[in-house]
Design a protein around this nucleic acid. Structure first.
Lengths: 248, 248
DNA sequence: ACCCCGGGGTATGGATACATTTCTTGCCAA
DNA sequence: TTGGCAAGAAATGTATCCATACCCCGGGGT
């Protein structure tokens, strides 16, 4: 990955991170002057970054009204999972007919990596990052093996939907994690055998269940991941904010 | 559709049109100064437009090297059709369970519109625009009936792939058009009956066949729609061994 | 001859200044 | 009090200017 030598990319990364991490809340208005000041850049690259993020779907845009952090309804999140399930299942079907020895090894390595991380009988907090990365890699690998770049591209977009991403792993139940990892094992196995439909079915269930589990967790611990304030926008008054530089 | 009273949107429309119509050829470099001059705007909104188009996929972008009209390989076009088939088939499945009386009427109206346009026993050239619009509307309607906004959004993206769009209708064989329209009729029929799998299957074949037909046409009349010079890019021979990536 | 290196022209990236639109607020009238 | 209106404030959209990176071409070393 190329590092951002350009201010635009830097702004994009910072903003994306701020949004996905919850530092910026859904519905928050993205004030160009203030944001530019905060990021230490001018409005030009900031606007470029916002434009890109708007296309990506992380923020919304309206003419002459500016940008705002996008809010997602649960239905939209559910829809994202549904499309992911469909596309990744499709990827499995396609990949099954294109497997090579190196592809098999690659998937096997990712499965082994997961085995290693789960070997202690629990997912240790300091291993969470690695596990998350392994998970993302597994799904990405399968999609790339499909040979259809659109699949990868669209699923990538869906990962920008908060809580719909592979990056989100907050499963408290270790058995769920274990089962999920076992899905990976079976998918890799089926692909190695060229059994596309089988791999496809497992993948579909793998993702569909993730949604179901998210839904359940959402009801149990709503505040944890989806901070979608239904009515009370915090509206940071920022009374102590500086006044503008120029005077009338 | 709202009129673009912002220069950025104007630039986006003009550029998109210029690219999809073939006025700008794949691989063409998009010179900011010259383009801005041509469009009668300054570089700032032009760059915003180009940024958006780059995210959309119509143009490519590289840091400090600018924008260029994107080139698509046939495999990419084929992949676009494959994903379209999958997503629109999915839309049918979902829509079948959500049909209402007004939805039925809407689809029926579109089918009737097609009947009217094809009634003469051929597709008259001056009716081509109307038919194309009807075709787009039909597919869009089904996707919106699915209730999953991601489907509409992604298929919309795919329409930006030259030759993968519903807008492209250059079927010389009237029977093909008639058959295609009959697919629409059957899809509407199946949806009205709540037969999601059936509608889904027809839709998948409808789109898969479109690709096959495109492939055939491409072989017969290559110069007509895909001007993808396969090899004769004006490859600028790099005389010097100058490394292109400099140290940060 | 070939290749590496460097300088100038040119194009892109970013910052600032200006124009236009929208939002806010205070006032007046019903 | 409430509703609307208008003027000012503030934010967005655009133009222009400056900085920086890249490309091309010529020169010198091997």
């Amino acid at each position: 990955m190329t590092e951002p030598h350009t201010s635009t990319e830097l702004a994009m990364r910072k903003l994306r991170e701020a949004i996905l991490s919850g530092e910026l809340l859904p519905g928050d208005k993205l004030h160009q002057d203030r944001l530019a000041d905060t990021l230490g850049i001018s409005r030009t690259p900031l606007r470029a970054a916002l434009t890109t993020l708007a296309q990506t779907g992380l923020v919304t845009y309206e003419s002459n009204r500016g940008f705002a952090v996008r809010e997602f309804s649960f239905d939209e999140v559910a829809g994202a999972f549904a499309v992911r399930a469909e596309l990744e299942a499709m990827a499995c079907r396609l990949a099954a007919g294109r497997m090579t020895e190196t592809a098999n090894q690659h998937l096997a390595r990712l499965v082994a990596e997961g085995d290693r991380l789960l070997e202690p009988g629990q997912l240790l907090p300091d291993k969470l990052g690695e596990y998350r990365q392994m998970n993302v890699d597994f799904h990405t690998t399968v999609m790339q093996l499909s040979g259809n770049p659109w699949i990868t591209s669209f699923v990538q977009s869906l990962h920008n939907v908060p809580a719909a991403s592979d990056r989100v792993i907050m499963w408290r139940d270790f058995r769920v994690i274990e089962r999920s990892h076992d899905d990976h094992r079976r998918i890799a196995h089926a692909l190695a055998l060229g059994q596309g439909e089988r791999a496809s079915a497992i993948m579909r269930e793998h993702i569909t269940f993730a949604l179901e589990h998210l839904h359940l967790q959402l009801q149990l611990y709503p505040q944890d991941f989806l901070r979608v304030p239904v009515f009370d926008k915090p509206v940071k008054g920022r009374t102590g904010g500086r006044s503008k530089r120029t005077n009338p």
